[in-house]
Amino acid sequence: MRRVGNTALAAVSVTALCTGAWLLHGGAGSHAPPQPSAAERRTDGTHGTHGTDGTQDTNGARRRAAPALPHSPPDRIRIPSIRVDAPLTGLGLTAAGSLDAPPAQKKNLAGWYAAGTAPGERGTAIVAGHVDNTDGPAVFYDLGALRKGAAIEVDRRDGSTAVFTVDAVEAYPASDFPDEKVYGAADRPELRVITCGGGYARSTGYQGNVVVFAHLTGSVR
């Protein structure tokens, strides 16, 4: 697939993830997924696309940006602090121009925007996954509980693992989704991990999205 960046993406690109099938069919016994606290918001005034000042990890150490890696498709994402360990599939655009979603029945499958930046190379890479399906919580159900400084590991097809550090975790209503902040170009390797959140209504599903902002801080082979 030709790599075209993220300019085709908009807020509508993530609505396919947000039907809230489990909450809709699960009745009172179902519980909404965790949402980010105010403490996890970005506080430096930046949009996470040009900063190089480093981020504190969960042990208090400063984690500065690592050099970009060559392009290589990703195969797996791990977020140890919220017990995510999931394969990745390439996602394209639907006929309507929105980002396609991973198959809902495969609840532990996430996807990446294969026409854009690959995780680890310079730019903004996009990973998305369902928060739930009709059977219960899905791959990114606990994404809103992620904290600044947490590690995200992405296994790449060239045998390397790109290691990212979380800069912020934020929730946005669908009516005011900050496209440029989330999808905009970056001058260092960055990652966005997106799922549904921001409240829930039975008539419409989830009202917005949870977005994790992270930057590359290392790699291993």
Rank of each mutant, 00 (worst) to 15 (best):
V4W: 07
G5D: 15
S13R: 03
S13H: 04
V14P: 01
V14G: 08
V14D: 06
V14E: 12
T15F: 08
A16P: 09
L17Y: 04
L17A: 08
L17E: 05
C18R: 01
T19G: 09
G20S: 01
A21D: 05
L24H: 12
L24F: 11
G27F: 06
H31D: 14
A32G: 09
P34N: 14
P34Y: 04
Q35N: 06
P36W: 08
A38S: 15
A38Q: 09
A38K: 06
E40F: 04
R42V: 10
T43E: 08
D44N: 13
G45K: 01
T46Q: 07
T46S: 14
H47S: 13
T49S: 08
H50W: 12
H50I: 13
G51K: 02
T55A: 09
N59G: 15
A61T: 12
R62D: 14
A65T: 15
P67G: 15
H71F: 12
R76N: 11
R76T: 12
I77P: 00
I77F: 02
R78A: 08
R78M: 09
R83I: 12
D85S: 10
P87M: 04
L88C: 07
A95H: 03
G97R: 06
G97D: 04
P102G: 05
P102F: 05
P102K: 08
Q105L: 14
K106S: 08
K106N: 13
K107Y: 10
K107E: 11
W112H: 01
A114Q: 06
A115T: 09
A118H: 03
G120W: 00
G120E: 03
E121H: 02
G123W: 00
I126A: 00
I126M: 04
I126L: 04
V127G: 01
A128G: 08
A128T: 03
D135R: 04
D135T: 13
G136Q: 01
G136E: 01
P137D: 12
A138N: 10
V139E: 01
F140H: 06
L143V: 10
R147E: 11
A151L: 10
I152C: 07
D155V: 11
D155T: 06
R157C: 13
D158G: 06
G159A: 10
T161S: 13
V163P: 06
T165V: 13
T165N: 05
E170V: 05
Y172T: 02
Y172Q: 03
Y172M: 07
A174N: 05
P178R: 02
P189Y: 01
R192N: 05
V193N: 04
T195N: 10
Q207N: 07
T217I: 13
R221S: 14
